[in-house]
Write a protein that binds this DNA or RNA. Structure first.
Lengths: 225, 225
DNA sequence: CCCTTGGCAAGAGCAGTGCTCTCTTTTGTG
DNA sequence: CACAAAAGAGAGCACTGCTCTTGCCAAGGG
């Protein structure tokens, strides 16, 4: 009916269906899911799937983008509470909760890159959403005087950080951006450590441990070195 | 000649040779290296390799243990300098340098776990070596009064941390252990972020950025929340 | 309303994989 | 030195990603 013809609509639906089944397989087989198995589950020939995704890598790319977007919206929706620490912790827990619910998708986006695989440009947009959320919170905290800047950073690193600041939260001092990125790295590291088994046989009180870590990260942001 | 007969020695040499070739393949193909391809490189039938490793997973396990050990000795050898921060930074940089030199081996041990793969007990010993190094440095700093403990931690998490303290650096307050683990997580997160492409198109001054992050982690340890 | 054409699905096929089984050869050792 | 144990080779099974060819079918223009 619309300019996007019936064909296009059916095609989009089929594409979504393939992705849905692939996501199910992802939950059991991880990144080495089989395109043929997905096709079998859909009752179609494996060659037919290639009408929708030119290769297995392209399917994976689609799932990576979806995962980034899902995590991104989760984080964006989680910005609640008042005061910097509460808002930050809220985001952290939402990220961790999502990761615990979708471990293989987390592994897909924050785990080791698939060997022969090169992430295309399309992934960078969705990929930065969660760091953007953190950047925004930190920016607001900075504007509200909740976070001191500390000593300025020079050299190439200073330029890099200034550029990120401009893109993320204009007006925020680069030093703060560095600490925000530190918090984000710490967040991803903590979630990955828990998910990838680095805490096995060591820490049982996972949630408490995570919260402690993220409180440390929040404190790191509030006070300069 | 020895109690370990000639057969056993030849077998050990062959095993090492297979691992060496596999490590070379790891550098190009990552975790999905092909046992058959390794066999081809060695000029032997693929079935012959199964005399040495019962499965591809077992080969991977061997490489994981080797990687943990290589990284562990690197970190242990890097404890130099005087004062907590210097010693800590020295270890951090040695870990990062090793990871940059052996990215796929890093991915093998700190990246997403191989899907159907369960790490056997043999890996836990080598796996804890680097966190042990950090724990020891922090313990010494604590003993030297370079790191205040801060508020005690109760509940299950407190017990967990006390247990880790006992195993790692006896006499160190659990709160400090928590911060040491935080630093370790931050370290792994920073290296993984750099290696897995999370910093692409953002931070060019990688080493400076890393150092800044690790200085933050060091400061985090020195002062309580 | 018909008929063309563009898109879709199916199947066979290729090269490669992990792993098993059987058979033969080698080789250290009692 | 004879022999048993260890090692290697090769075929084979079920699977993979991907390509190519063939047949089909309906959407949309005339």
């Amino acid at each position: 009916m619309t300019a996007a013809s019936i064909r296009a609509r059916v095609r989009a639906e089929m594409t979504d269906e393939i992705k849905a089944v692939a996501r199910r397989h992802l939950a059991t087989d991880g990144a080495n899911l089989s395109l043929r198995a997905v096709a079998r589950d859909l009752g179609m020939a494996s060659s037919a799937v290639y009408r929708y995704f030119a290769s297995r890598d392209e399917l994976l790319t689609a799932m990576i983008i979806d995962a980034y977007d899902a995590l991104g919206s989760t984080a964006e929706a989680a910005v609640g509470g008042t005061g910097f620490t509460d808002r930050f912790l809220s985001v952290c827990h939402s990220v961790r909760d999502w990761a615990l619910a979708h471990p293989h998708e987390w592994a897909l986006i924050y785990g080791s890159p698939v060997p022969g695989y090169q992430a295309p440009r399309d992934t960078v947009g969705p990929a930065v959403r969660v760091i953007l959320v953190i950047g925004r919170i930190v920016g607001e905290a900075s504007a509200a005087g909740e976070a001191a800047a500390g000593e300025p950073i020079g050299g190439k690193l200073g330029d890099d950080l200034a550029f990120v600041a401009e893109q993320t939260a204009p007006g925020t001092p680069p030093q703060l951006i560095a600490r925000a990125m530190g918090a984000w790295i710490h967040l991803c590291g903590a979630v990955s450590a828990e998910l990838f088994g680095q805490l096995n046989n060591t820490i049982e009180a996972r949630r408490e441990f995570f919260e402690l870590q993220m409180r440390g990260a929040a404190a790191m942001i509030s006070r300069p070195l």
